[in-house]
Amino acid sequence: MDIISIIFILAGTFFFATATLGLLRFPDFYTRMHATGKGDTLGAFLSLIGLALYNLHDGMSFDALLVSIKIMFIAIFMFVANPTATHAITKAGLDCKVEPWTKKESSQ
């Protein structure tokens, strides 16, 4: 059980790290949304699953089960809320007429 949760948390941290690197490296606002919208959702989801599993490691008592269910609730909430926030910010960018970065402009 411990090993599975360690694997989950490490994978989540890896995706968090790629999301952050993408946030720093990508050239414009829309492409940064790609990195954060996906990497953050999966990173949080995997880390929270790992924590919920670890929380059950010493016996399935009622309290521990309740806490694990709560952690899974947070995970599901983030799973729905993160893409929605991504849409909202992207739409704000479109409405503010932020120009998308394209490859041709950079080669000129």
């Binding site: 949304m33 983030m78 910010i89």
Partner: peptide, 12 residues
């Protein structure tokens, strides 16, 4: 965006 990303990390 970056504040929202920081918030997600803070939850974990």
């Amino acid at each position: 965006i970056s504040t929202s990303v920081i918030g997600t990390k803070t939850t974990v």
